[in-house]
Structures are given as structure tokens and as C-alpha cells.
Amino acid sequence: MRSEEEARRAIEQYSDLVRRLCMIHLKNHSDTEDIFQTVFLKYVLSSASFESPEHEKAWFIRVTINACKDLLKSFFRKHTVSLDEVLDQPAPLEDRHREVLEAVLSLPPTYKDVVYLHYYEGYTAPEIGHILGKNVNTIYTLLNRARHMLKETLGGDTGE
């Protein structure tokens, strides 16, 4: 089992990452809280040793996405919620940010992870394919389609 210090460091380092993935997948704050507890407890109990910070980060991405998917399959979860609640933040979002995030959230579920990992985390298609366990060509296709959809919604240049 990992120490309290390791847990604090991981929370400081990866909580924003986990929070953004939760925003992409989940519908309300209590589900986000569940995912935080699940992911970080799994980390504390995990005996896995990470070769590098990148390896550790990829582990958090994979575990968070899987935990979100498991929760979405759960019968007891809350099914519907407004976008305002999804994008609920201590500091209100500016309209332009809200518009962009709403466009991303309106994408089909398979596209959202890819968009986030590519556009925010800066991963390449092969890296995303490795993290998500998907074929690289599939990632290219998803990125391409997502780009077109975002362009239609938001307008403007959505190039690489």
C-alpha cells in the first residue's frame, strides 16, 4: 500500500486530469466524487511500479476512463442532468469556454476522450491508441470526424 504522502502527491498532480475526464463522461458531481474515490483508492492500494511519470499519467487516464464507463453501466446512477451542472465550476466559465466545452460534450462518447487527450494533453494518435487500447487508424478516424463535427458546431479553423 502506498503512503499518505504518495496519495497527496498523486491527488495534487492528477486531480485536474481526473476531473476533466469526469466532466467528459459523467453527469453530476456525486458521480465525480465516486470516481475520485475509486481512482485514488485504487492507486493507493496498487502495488504497480511506474517506469516514468508518463507511465503513471497514462495509468490514471486509463483507470479513470474505465471507472467512468463502469459507473455509466451502473443501474443506480443518476441518468439525466443539465449541462450547467456538468460544467459547474467554483469560478463561472466565460461564455467562449462554455461554448467550446458544450460542443465537445455534445460529441458522441467515443470521440470525447480522443479530443481531450489530443487537444489538451497533447498526445499523438499512436500514444492515444496505446493508452486506450485501440487501433491507431481508428484514433485518426475519430480525430478527423471529431474535428469536422467541432468545425460545424463552432466554425473556424480546427486544423492540427
Binding site: 496519495a7 476531473r19 474515490q37 460544467l87 467550446v100
Partner: peptide
Amino acid sequence: TLKEAFGQIRAEQALKETTL
């Protein structure tokens, strides 16, 4: 724009403390 928008989303301090 996408990077900036995603950057606005941060884990609330209360959420971190609850998790700890």
C-alpha cells in the same frame, strides 16, 4: 481554444479534501 477551455476545468479543493 480547446486547450484554454479544458484548462478552465479544475478539481475543486473540497473534492480533493473529501477524497483524502
